[in-house]
Amino acid sequence: MKNKRFAIVLDTKRCIDCKACTVACKTENHVPLGTDNYRNWVGPEPLRGTYPNLGQTFTPSQCQHCSNPPCEHVCPTGATTVTPDGIVHVIEHKCIGCKYCMTACPYDARYYNEEIEAVDKCTFCSQRIYGENGQLPACVETCPTKVRVFGDLNDPNSDVSKLLAKHPSRVLKPAQGTKPNLYYLI
């Protein structure tokens, strides 16, 4: 069977900074409480313009599941690895907590989870997408305005492929050469 290339396409114009995605992720993935612990986040960008001509956008983000992941390259124990479907993840018992990967990640997508004593990060909610009912990732499913669309880029008929074919998009920090798989519609 052909492998998948999982990706998320985001339409940030729809984001209202309601933080449903961050709470959903925390509960789904047992991310410990505390503002330094997160697998995803929503960045309110700085206010643009001067009163009363103001503007503001909100940018949700998470691990970019890079095709060329710097975190994997620096991991001394092979704890950070990539599945055949492109999910970058950490094998808990192999992680020694050196945090090299946290430094290497240009997106700041990783945190150290004191409870499991390992570095933790977004897994595209693999327990949900491979689960019995084939659920969507928690952040994707719960979003009121459906900012995120999740799917397989290897399937030209998937929603993500169709969206990217139809609309221009960009990735974050392309100069880093990480080849991210989170696409932001322009």
């Binding site: 309601c18 449903a20 709470v23 509960t27 659920q135 499913e141 719960t142 979003c143």
Partner: peptide, 22 residues
């Protein structure tokens, strides 16, 4: 463990907000 939105629930277009998740 988790509260998920009910996909059949047309009134809220199948979503849960931060409070709903919390």
């Amino acid at each position: 463990r988790k509260l998920d939105p009910n996909p059949h629930f047309i009134k809220s277009r199948a979503m849960l907000c931060a409070r709903g998740n919390a």
